[in-house]
Simulated scan of single mutants.
Amino acid sequence: MSQPILTDMQVKMKKALEHTLHEFSQIHTGKASPTMVEAVMVEAYGSTMRLKECAAISTPDARMILIQPWDKGITQSIVKGIQIANLGFNPLVDGANVRVPLPELSRERRQEMVKRAHGMAEDGRVQVRSVRRDAMDALKKAEKDGDISEDELKRCEKEVQAATDQTIKEIGEHLAKKEKELTTL
């Protein structure tokens, strides 16, 4: 009976970790990456869609993002979408393409990014702890209902805590790596 609870907990913790890592990938470190702009919302064809759904995004070099719209008519909408997203980029139209040069990060901006990364990591830890609480509650309810024994409850609680500690440790390791990326020039 305890196995579905533990399996569900592991899946949810993995999702919380993946979400946190995805959030980290959106913090730019001065090195160009398509993930920096692919979620930008663009007005196209009478609706709003993600940039990655209406253009090819590449990085020809470490300080430039190149966006090639599949329809030349939405080039200005892409520029407007990037400006509205307030990412700190100044897109330039180059024929049918949009070039996004990355500005050099100042020390203050780097520290701001580090703070943002710490906030994202804390959000991830909170999600993991929430999953732990839900799993513990489900296990205690199962023990109260007589579905699992007290010994099994104790064993499962240790498993839940071990999984929680491991996931939080992974978030911390990725945060340290991101912080090092952001602070090294």
Rank of each mutant, 00 (worst) to 15 (best):
41 M>D: 13
69 P>K: 04
170 E>C: 09
108 E>A: 09
72 K>D: 14
108 E>L: 00
70 W>S: 11
171 I>R: 02
43 E>I: 07
37 V>K: 00
132 R>F: 03
178 K>N: 05
174 H>N: 14
75 T>Y: 00
16 A>Y: 03
184 T>Q: 12
121 A>E: 03
73 G>E: 12
94 D>Q: 10
178 K>Y: 01
39 A>Q: 13
164 T>W: 04
155 R>C: 01
13 M>T: 14
145 D>I: 13
12 K>W: 02
25 S>L: 06
80 K>R: 15
106 S>F: 04
109 R>D: 13
7 T>E: 15
58 S>Q: 12
124 G>T: 03
94 D>E: 14
16 A>H: 02
19 H>R: 12
60 P>E: 05
35 T>D: 13
140 K>A: 10
54 C>K: 03
82 I>S: 02
172 G>F: 06
168 I>W: 02
65 I>Q: 00
145 D>F: 01
184 T>S: 11
142 A>Y: 03
54 C>Y: 01
107 R>I: 08
17 L>M: 09
51 L>E: 09
54 C>I: 15
158 K>Y: 06
56 A>N: 15
79 V>Q: 03
153 L>R: 15
10 Q>F: 01
50 R>T: 13
44 A>I: 00
151 D>C: 09
81 G>T: 09
82 I>W: 01
106 S>I: 03
10 Q>M: 09
70 W>G: 12
85 A>I: 04
157 E>F: 06
164 T>E: 07
183 T>F: 02
113 M>I: 07
128 V>D: 00
134 D>F: 03
5 I>P: 01
79 V>C: 04
64 M>D: 12
76 Q>I: 15
168 I>R: 03
166 Q>L: 10
83 Q>W: 00
26 Q>N: 13
54 C>D: 10
68 Q>N: 14
147 D>L: 12
74 I>G: 08
70 W>V: 08
77 S>P: 07
12 K>R: 15
35 T>Y: 08
100 V>I: 12
81 G>M: 04
80 K>Y: 06
131 V>I: 09
16 A>Q: 03
133 R>H: 11
124 G>R: 00
29 T>F: 04
52 K>N: 15
4 P>Q: 11
76 Q>P: 11
101 P>D: 10
82 I>V: 12
3 Q>P: 07
5 I>T: 07
53 E>N: 13
40 V>Y: 00
34 P>F: 02
126 V>E: 08
103 P>L: 08
102 L>S: 04
6 L>N: 04
63 R>D: 06
159 E>Y: 00
64 M>I: 08
72 K>Y: 11
126 V>R: 05
87 L>N: 03
89 F>P: 07
169 K>S: 10
20 T>P: 01
39 A>S: 13
15 K>D: 15
1 M>G: 11
67 I>P: 01
6 L>Q: 04
24 F>I: 06
8 D>P: 01
141 K>S: 12
41 M>E: 15
45 Y>E: 11
107 R>M: 07
73 G>Q: 14
33 S>R: 05
33 S>V: 01
179 E>S: 12
